[in-house]
């Protein structure tokens, strides 16, 4: 896999993003604003998943670096997403280190997370998911799974790009993303749940 053969996963606006990056590299300020608007949502979502409330601050740090090093970047729109995610991740890790990493969800919170939320029902497919709950669920995943899921789904990176951001083998990232999503699916009562009965409280993850 990934021997240069796996096509890149293109997102909406990747083409537009690539063009805007090129113009910004030539000095076009408004193009840079476009770049920001396209990239920031995914970046913020990713950062919220790994640093929680301080995501906006970390994102601002990341954008300083992105703005400064813009000229160094080489690649297309999808590559830009990977490059900016890497920068954001480094800033996030620095941030966590400064704070001496906050502990993950406590045991009590875990029980809470297992309860069906107001948006979930046993028999219906979950139609929407609040940001709050989504974050809770994702942050309840093992860190490698959380990051893999966030990079793949929220930032929209393909397998090889996500692996590069994380500094791991593509296979490991693939597995982590798969497991993370499976677990989330179970928690959300979405496809993948094998038991037909009502969800049990404190269901093992």
């Amino acid at each position: 896999m990934g021997q240069g053969g796996e096509p890149r996963r293109a997102q909406a606006y990747d083409g537009e993003l690539g063009a805007a990056v090129a113009r910004a590299q030539d000095g076009d300020e408004s193009a840079f604003a476009v770049v920001y608007r396209i990239v920031q949502p995914g970046l913020l979502g990713y950062l919220r998943g790994i640093v929680g409330d301080d995501a906006e601050d970390v994102a601002s740090d990341a954008w300083l670096e992105i703005a400064r090093d813009l000229g160094r970047f080489k690649g297309d729109g999808a590559g830009f997403r990977g490059w900016t995610a890497t920068i954001a991740r480094h800033r996030a890790l620095d941030h966590l280190r400064r704070l001496r990493v906050r502990p993950r969800a406590s045991a009590l919170e875990q029980d809470v997370l297992d309860l069906p939320g107001p948006h979930d029902t046993h028999d219906q497919v979950v139609e929407s998911l609040s940001t709050e709950r989504a974050l809770d669920l994702v942050r309840g995943l093992p860190p490698d799974q959380a990051e893999a899921v966030l990079l793949r789904v929220v930032v929209g990176l393909d397998g090889p790009a996500a692996a590069r951001v994380l500094g791991k083998r593509p296979g490991a990232v693939r597995t982590a993303a798969h497991r993370g999503l499976k677990r989330l699916a179970r928690q959300l009562g979405v496809e993948g749940v094998t038991d037909d009965g009502p969800r049990t409280l404190g269901e093992s993850k």
Binding site: L44, G45, V126, L129, T131, L135, V154
Partner: peptide, 8 residues
């Protein structure tokens, strides 16, 4: 679901 919840 995740995308809609987290990507704003």
């Amino acid at each position: 679901l995740l995308t809609r919840a987290l990507r704003h």
